[in-house]
Design a protein around this nucleic acid. Sequence first.
RNA 1: GGGCGUUUAGCUCAGUGGUAGAGCGCUUCGUUUACACCGAAGAUGUCGGGAGUUCGACCCUCUCAACGCCCA
Length: 880
Amino acid sequence: MTLEKTINTAEIESRQYKEWEASGAFTGHPEKNTAPYTIMMPPPNVTGSLHMGHALNNTLQDIMIRYNRMRGKDAMWMPGTDHAGIATQMVVERQLDQEGLKRQDMGREAFLKRVWEWKAYSGGTITGQLRRLGSTPDWSREAFTMDANLSKAVVKVFVQLYKDGLLYRDKRLVNWDPKFHSAISDLEVENREVKGHMWHIQYAIEGDKARTITIATTRPETMLGDTAIAVNPEDDRYKDLIGKMAIVPICNRLIPIVADEYADPEHGSGAVKITPAHDFNDFEVGKRHKLPMINIFDENAHLNENVPEEYRGMERFAARKKILKELEELEILVKVDNITHTVPHGDRSGVVIEPYLTDQWYVDAKKMSLPVVDAIKAGKTEFVPKNWEQITFNWVDNLQPWCVSRQLWWGHQIPAWYDEDGKVYVAENEEEAQKQAPGKKLTRDEDVLDTWFSSALWPFSTLGWPEKTPELNKYYPGDLLITGFDIIFFWVLRMMMMGIHFMGDVPFKKVYLHALVLDAKGQKMSKSKGNVIDPLTIIDKFGADALRFTMSASAAQGRDIRMSEERVEGYRNFTTKLWNAARYCEMNDCLPKEGFDPSKVKNVINQWIIGEVLKATKDIEDALAAYKFNEASHAVYQFTWGTFCDWYLEFTKPLLADAPDDVKAEIRGTTGWVLDQILRLLNPFMPYVTEELYANIAKRGKDERLLTSEWPSYPASLINNAAAEEIGWLQRVISQIRSVRSDMNVPASARIDLVVQDASETTKKHISTYEAVLKQMARLNSVSLLTGKAPGRSIKAVVDEATLILPIADLIDLDKERERLNKQIAKLQDDIRKTDEKLANQQFVSNAPAEILEEFRNRKVEAQGLIDKLATALSQLEAA
RNA sequence: GGGCGUUUAGCUCAGUGGUAGAGCGCUUCGUUUACACCGAAGAUGUCGGGAGUUCGACCCUCUCAACGCCCA
């Protein structure tokens, strides 16, 4: 086959992916003895679509999976999707809304049918998009958090945690989302800074018309639920009022004035109203003082029957207005301050969260997290970068019970039943529950579980737990988890809690936490800002390989990634470069040859490039072992472009034209071999273009693919230091000549002569060996050794012991050459001065390690040698 | 208010206790039959400010500042 002149990424991508998937190479083999390499994919929302975060996350996972598959591991990347309770229900409710329907009118069953339909319709979108990225998870095991077996695991876990006393029902204040009519967890609350007011309201004191007490509040409507006023016990202003009763305006209820440290004398008026049913701090104060709790809201955050008649049924912010108006009329609204404060909002709904007293299910997250901390400290699970471990510990210290019930319909319905007295029975099914409550009429808990409850089980529920499957046996614990730091607390820790509790071991050995993908200006991408870059658009424009390489090359640990098209464009150019290099190889019959043995190579240039392949391989391996994706990418990029294309192919061009046949044959073999290695090294990063080239550069068997080929592995003895030194010399000579030519404005088209002065025997040998290469790459007419006197009017450059003379009298500008030489000398003298200062420092000489001293001394000698040669060149110039 | 992170070339960012690197951009030159999505050469930095540790600091410590994120 002949490679097309230009690469057609869209065509290659769709064709190659189909072949990969059909080949069955993504599938894990629990029945085989091969060592496993397991990654659990963070399941994206089933109805979602690919964003840059997914692109980053999945690229990194796929690199590790492909790399380990090539290294002979049983690579198993577990894919799947999450039912995403609130998010999905919200989407479907919005659709219903447009049809003028409400889920309450449809009923639970009909609504769920509708959600399943939506899931069936849009559920394949995200997995299709992951395929476009080139991801190779084991699709045959694709799971969904609401699959029957995963749901079974959820029920099992719920019941067991209940039995273990780690899950319980409790009446507490929750973060209530009035839009969803549901409790949400602390983590789902987003505190937003907003402009608001601090209202100062005067309360009368019972039996003392002369005294009043002024409290400050940002939420005056909650005064209808006040059950106390708190003052600081040390606050002299109010000491005498402690124990007296105040009168709540409007509803004219009597409430005690209590002493509590919570009241901050510095803050507001120093006196705070206490509404235990609607504020987390007040709730604690209420418990301390055994205050009654008056709930004044319903599930819509509308005022309920516990408030004066004229307020009942009012929306909370309307009620606030009315109250303020009434307070004003009563002339007890004494002051209004404009302030900025943080107000809790639902991260999904965007509405203000109301602390609300309800019965909910809680998991004792604190208790379950203790073994997690121990496991991390013991190194059973290691976080990369490490600093997340400490952050995790701090967070665990402040852990609150995890509210796991949600008043939604889409999700895992809680396996709990109530009898007519409200007694609860937790069981795996109704039959079991009934056994616990013989003869009683049971009703099932209407609520569902937090989405993160089921995703916390992901590392083992997807492998068949609670059955003892071969998969579970082989793939748990997983090797690596790659996810964003923003869901450490939502997901990573909860997986660890559940994994340790139910499997007796951590779910993964390493957790790589990547940063966020931002726009080019460093801002978070969001629909409202309109700065979202769609990965699919990027793929269409530059190809999936370019996007993947951008992600990998940008993934420096602990730093956000600024996404810009220019960067992707640069890596698109890299794919083109590789493509063209392969075309060149094809045109020159430099393709992989059967039976080529890199250890048998005789030509130094070939020995050198083989050694460079090995060095690059090691660099990539080391970088990946440390999860430094940017370094690994850089190593393979640099080798391919900077070493193979820029030097090796250029070195060998003149030889392919003129050298003896055996040399040509060896070059062809070596070039083909190196190309083959590059394709392997690059494959995890750029799977499509490499696969396509691999298929085209040699005859391949039906099932022979890079996807399942082997990662390069050769003995380090193939690195030939003498060859590296020799080629280093060659590169220095060529660079020097090119540099002076350019400095002196010698036209590239001008073929000039090179005369070498003071050449050592080795250099003489090299000059003769590489004459053809030097001529072509430095654009020379002839290469010779100096005999007799050095020509005066010429450009000179120094490489090691030798002086390179370019006698081009008619082409050079004497002043310019003088200037160039003087500049070089001046710079070297400056270096020597600095080195001398160091060497003159007695403390440096006596304290610095020997090899450093040696290095500085050598540096000086070398610089002096150079100066001498340049000075000679300069004086000859003057003499001429 | 607490915590974390960032501050290095015009831009985006790597980096190491021993005389600063990449990509992009910029300048000059170039149509040598893989590639102009290219090649060659080049310019540009008191490595945020200050102090300390050290023979030696961009790197370690302290401090200040700016910016960002998270939590209260």
